[in-house]
Amino acid sequence: MSKINRRKFLTIAGTLSAGAALTACATPAPTAAPAAPGAAAKPAAKQFKIAMVCPSLVNDAAFSQSMYDAIMSVQKEMGGESALMLKYSDNVFQVPNAAAAIRDYAGQGFDLVIAHGTQYGNSLQEIAKDFPNVAFAWGTATDNFESKGLKNVFAYNPKAEEGGYVLGVLAAKMTKSNVVGVCGPVEAGDAKTFVDGFKKGVTDTNKAAKVNVTYTGNFSDVSLMAAAAETHTKAGADILTGSSQSVVGAIGIAKDKKIVWFGTQSNQANLAPETVGASQVYDWSGIVKEMISMINSGKKGTVSFESTLKNGGLKIVYNDKVAISADAKAAAAAATKDIADGKLKALP
């Protein structure tokens, strides 16, 4: 229902802004564009306008969806579309296309342009220079380019290993076979840090437990991911986890074999309610809100946010439909606290 409304709204907004863009086109050179957005942003009542570019679909049940969901929840909190407007381009895996999209949104008077993909960094650095009046956010990343003289870029980075560690503790407590399987995509980025944290969590908690790790070598091969999950179960695993949008394949197998799955990036419980025990959720809403208030008070960048278990940017969300013992939950809570207090390092 709200989806339909959103689409209608976006269509109208799209029509308006395309019209605006056409008019803007009459200005001779694009170099003139940077001056325009600041002027355009103000008269539009008090609506805050966000544009997002992300590498996979916003309904990927993983990385892109985590940001989309966060913005949607902030929108709800702020009072709907009249207070916060989002336009997005999803499935933009290729950097030059993303660069064009980011530049285009920047020139259209958005208050905040989110480049939700680490690979966009290089391009963002160039674009941000040309649009000093627009605030940009870039993640997952740690560099806000302040050292390069840019004052209008935020960076955000999830410490994926933290939630990975906690889920590892849960897995170690719950496994009966003492074998846990990890279905990875490519051994890189937050998939790698998540897996590293998870492995450490399991072995720190249960010395007897083995962690088997496989990779499929890409982010979309659902079928190979399913085969990997199946291999893990044949190798004795009774708990599975994994990262990237292609894990839906593994979740399907976990459901079939009636074993527990731990998710990451987005809350994956709705993919298979009786299978997903808990998910590490990237909850960007706190960061989004913080950025909005900073931008409203005139600060457009130079901050690097870190999502941690401590600041609530990472959340372990349990799924009530899957039984998890109080003992396991207590151990997980203890690990969460130790990580938050800095007593425990999630990465080896």
Partner: peptide, 17 residues
């Protein structure tokens, strides 16, 4: 076509697919 279609997606917010 490739560049224009991307722009079209942004302008009217239709799914990229």
């Amino acid at each position: 076509l490739l560049v224009g279609a991307d722009k079209m997606q942004r302008a009217v917010q239709v799914p990229a697919s």
